[in-house]
Amino acid sequence: MLTEFGRVLIFFIIGAVFVAGGLVTAWLIRPNRPYPSKLTTYECGEVPIGDTRVRFNIRFYVIALIFLIFDVEVVFLFPWALVYSQLGWFAFVEMVIFIVILFVGYAYVWRKGDLDWDRPAPKIPTFEKGVGVREDHLLEEQVVGS
């Protein structure tokens, strides 16, 4: 009666009940004494600044795009792996052709630097000879700042 996916469904249900049960139990037995600093967004030892939703780097998007293509490739690999032992060399050669064609694309994005994670170069402070700190300038800033 119980199919393989039926077992998966039972796992899903147990997982959902586990999470919901934990939250509901905590909600039932915990004392409710809120104060402002308890209600702020938790950030380890810091006062949270700004919005939680920051803009992501476009790099993530490119990597996700490339990942998606190879994700589709994996979908083709699964049925092949199941019949490989019956079909033998023929299926092996077919899959090698399939992968080599996609490997061309992989080599392309690698060569073109789409996989590189270019971080901005660190700015190393340098000292120039003969350029000192002018103290009157510093004093001026202090006056403006205060």
């Binding site: 490119v62 490339i66 490739e73 083709f76 052709i97 399939f98 992968i99 996609l102 392309y108 789409d114």
Partner: peptide, 22 residues
Amino acid sequence: PFEIASIILLVALIGAAMIARR
């Protein structure tokens, strides 16, 4: 169709990489 799917994926990969490149 199986091998053509591979070529379509290749085209999609190169096209997406070209468009999305900074």
